[in-house]
């Protein structure tokens, strides 16, 4: 309580410039900590990557990916892979915070809680994008499709932002429950369906060479979803980490 008061008086007296400066400093501190820890252990990244490759392998047997079907299902296979690998990463990244007591330490620090949220979003996004950047060429080689198109990369970026934006909020909740190992996908998948839907539509649009006017609609939806849900998560994140 006293700390809260101190914090508010501090922020009131501080001028606007240094306040935003502090915020960015806190965000980058969280990101930096995550990236450094990951750089040392590489456990999260390697698990996500191997898991993604295994999913692609399973899809190969499950769907009989011959040349004809490949065209139509590539977008779906990619996004299903990213979604499954994503939950693995999100869960682990938050569980580490919880187990090592980092979250409590961060909460005691005199920074805005939303800085923790944005920090975690950025580091989770970084992990996801790195995995995606490795999965794409592997998929391209294995199935002989060119996935390196600027439009497709944009879709993957926008889709990952929406996925991680909601996923970070929900994983912060799920790691604090008794059923934390299994809960995240159950919470996350039904609410990210719009992201997956729009991302698959836009990706397959780019892959089949559809007209831009057709791709514009899912792209707009992705942008709208990203903005709405990151704004909501930003507003409610306080309630999720409050102790």
């Amino acid at each position: 309580m006293a700390e809260n008061v101190e914090r508010t008086t501090k922020t009131h007296t501080a001028d606007r410039g240094s306040r935003t400066g502090n915020f960015f400093k806190a965000v980058s501190a969280v990101v930096w900590k995550d990236l450094q820890a990951e750089f040392r252990s590489r456990e999260l990244f390697s698990a996500m990557l191997v898991f993604s490759l295994l999913i692609i392998l399973i899809f190969n047997f499950a769907l009989e990916l011959d040349i004809k079907t490949r065209q139509s299902v590539t977008a779906g296979v990619l996004w299903a892979t990213f979604a499954f690998a994503g939950t693995l990463g999100l869960n682990r990244s938050m569980a580490i915070e919880k187990d090592r007591g980092c979250l409590d330490g961060l909460l005691l620090a005199p920074v805005d809680r939303s800085a923790i949220y944005f920090g975690k979003v950025i580091s989770n996004l970084a992990f996801m994008l790195i995995v995606e950047i490795i999965v794409l060429p592997v998929y391209s080689i294995l199935y002989n499709v060119n996935l390196f198109q600027a439009g497709l990369l944009l879709v993957i970026l926008l889709g990952s932002i929406g996925y991680v934006g909601v996923g970070t909020l929900l994983s912060a909740m799920s790691v604090q429950t008794r059923t934390r190992d299994i809960l995240l996908p159950i919470l996350l998948f039904p609410v990210v369906i719009p992201v997956l839907l729009a991302a698959v539509k836009a990706s397959s649009g780019y892959l089949t060479g559809a007209e831009f006017s057709e791709i514009l609609l899912p792209l707009n939806l992705l942008i709208a979803y990203d903005i709405i849900f990151i704004a909501v998560a930003f507003m409610v994140f306080d309630n999720v980490v409050e102790e």
Partner: peptide, 12 residues
């Protein structure tokens, strides 16, 4: 947590 999830779900 329930309130947060019901809000996210209700928007989605």
């Amino acid at each position: 947590f329930g309130a947060v999830y019901a809000l996210v779900g209700g928007l989605s």
